[in-house]
């Protein structure tokens, strides 16, 4: 029922835009990962594929995916060069692009087995000090805190093992979100620390019941600088492409409920949006 309603609104809106828009007939070129689940893959199974479809519907433009394999360089080699025009998931305020108004806010999470019943609320927890294995993604805020609590060196080898001992020199080494969640589910690690949206569907799919705790956003490095664990997400367009930015902002505003539905279906922990000014400031 709800699905039908969505299609109808999409159609009527698309028609409206088709009249006023200049490139109504041209496809919307979306920069999408070939295989970065749960965001996006070639088969369109990621939640950002669904969001892209929604945007396409709303704009009355067919979605054309321009797929990349190396997330390190996709903005430089694809978006900046005009091979594609929109990136669905970016930190709000990312200085490399123009970002839309945030369409959701989420946080990093601790994932544990329900049966273990661990008392794990924040980075000060004794659980993290004692855990034999903590699965996390290097380069994420989790690494900074792993260092701060003195567990980085203990976990170094495990962190390498998770990617089959591939060196991060001269290549992109993917930490597979599904694998990290399964490490906890299978009892190989007590805790996984992951970006909530990146782990949500695997937590949901796990045969072993898992517990998710959103990490509070009150962490700091040794020198006192804040280490952010909550982030707002926007869509991103090339600098200068204000027209598309305005259209996307419209879509986000009009289709708020539908976007939320997709994110909730994914199981993403959603946090209340901050004041826009605050969100921007944090990204500086």
């Amino acid at each position: 029922m709800r699905f039908k309603a969505t299609i109808l609104t999409a159609l009527s809106l698309a028609m409206g835009l088709a009249v006023s828009g200049t490139y109504a007939q041209e496809p919307l070129k979306v920069c999408a990962a070939e295989d970065e689940m749960p965001y996006s893959n070639k088969k369109g199974e990621g939640f950002e594929n669904k969001l892209a479809q929604l945007v396409g519907e709303e704009l009355g433009r067919k979605v054309e995916y321009v797929t990349w394999t190396d997330p390190r360089f996709y903005l430089r080699d694809y978006l900046d060069k005009g091979l594609c025009d929109v990136s669905i998931g970016m930190d709000t305020g990312d200085p490399r692009v123009l970002t839309t108004r945030p369409y959701y806010r989420s946080g990093y999470v601790f994932i544990t087995r329900q049966n273990d019943n661990l008392d794990l609320q924040n980075w000060d927890s004794e659980v993290l000090r004692k855990a034999e294995r903590i699965a996390y993604v290097p380069g994420s805020p989790a690494e900074v805190m792993m260092r701060a609590i003195g567990r980085y060196n203990d976990m170094f080898n495990y962190e390498q093992e998770l990617v089959g001992y591939k060196s991060r020199r001269n290549q992109y080494v993917k930490y597979d979100n599904a694998k990290l969640v399964s490490e906890v589910a299978a009892g190989r690690a007590e805790v996984a620390v992951l970006w909530g949206p990146a782990s949500a569907r695997y937590v949901k799919e796990s045969a072993a019941p898992l517990k998710v705790t959103v990490i509070p956003d009150n962490n700091a490095r040794a020198d006192g600088e804040k280490v952010g664990f909550h982030y707002s997400t926007s869509m991103g367009v090339r600098k200068g492409d204000e027209a598309l930015l305005a259209q996307l902002n419209q879509v986000i505003e009009k289709r708020q409920q539908d976007i939320r539905q997709i994110l909730e279906a994914e199981g993403i922990p959603l946090l209340p949006e901050q004041e826009p000014a605050l969100a921007m400031k944090k990204q500086d």
């Binding site: 390190r72 360089f73 380069g139 994420s140 991060r168 001269n170 290549q171 280490v227 664990f229 982030y231």
Partner: peptide, 17 residues
Amino acid sequence: PFMLPYRAGQFFVGATL
């Protein structure tokens, strides 16, 4: 050496030789 932002405050740290 590179330190490239990705999303959710994650960076790719590495070097190209």
